[in-house]
Design a protein around this nucleic acid. Structure first.
Lengths: 99, 99
DNA sequence: TTGACATATTCAAAAAATTGAATGTTTAAA
DNA sequence: TTTAAACATTCAATTTTTTGAATATGTCAA
């Protein structure tokens, strides 16, 4: 058990940024889908029933923060969760904020 | 281990809202301070070195989402963490996003 | 009461996030 | 090559968030 030193401002900003990146219903949903299995943009677009551009923008943002990663095969991009913290936070949400 | 049912849209929005409420460096810092012990607005203002109004606004927002609670004694208000999820997420951040 | 202190609220300006349409890029198939 | 499919990017309009100054409210002490 560590001493719970205060996080330094730089780290604090990065952490807040990660939380903010996750703090959108559609992005949360994306992580939820990708937790089960990697999916292409088209598959995610179908599941979320949102415009492709919107889904792509969400994916870009999640990827920019290192939360997702993409593997391209031919002309499709397969996204997957790339940061374990993502799933931990999702689990935390499920157990603490679900109802 | 549950079946990881997809969160319904309403819950998803609430969860995203909670994350967003936490996704600000100063608000994260507030939770961090209050994790150790309850504090008054003045004490928090001193620790954060931010204008009182700003701290108060952050507190109001955290309280509105049920993450903090306030107990008033005379003319001071003592804030404390009121939602366990808060601390779980803080712990998650420490272990996954700290460096 | 009056005055000072602690906290909360309002307000307007500035900054950031969200949205979808339009368009660009890359790759595979014809 | 052309064409189309899959994804990414740009853009401008809209909405939301953030900020601090100003001010309001409530409470204690004199």
């Amino acid at each position: 058990m560590s001493k719970a030193r205060p996080l330094d401002p730089k780290v604090l900003r990065r952490c807040a940024g990660a939380l903010r990146t996750l703090s959108h219903p559609e992005r949360l949903r994306i992580v939820e889908e990708l937790e089960k299995a990697p999916l292409s943009v088209a598959e995610l677009t179908a599941r979320l029933r949102r415009p492709q551009a919107t889904v792509s923008q969400h994916l870009m943002r999640l990827r920019a923060h290192g939360l997702l990663a993409a593997e391209r095969k031919g002309r499709t991009a397969r996204y997957r969760v790339a940061h374990a913290g993502c799933l931990t936070i999702l689990g935390c949400i499920r157990s603490h904020f679900s109802n």
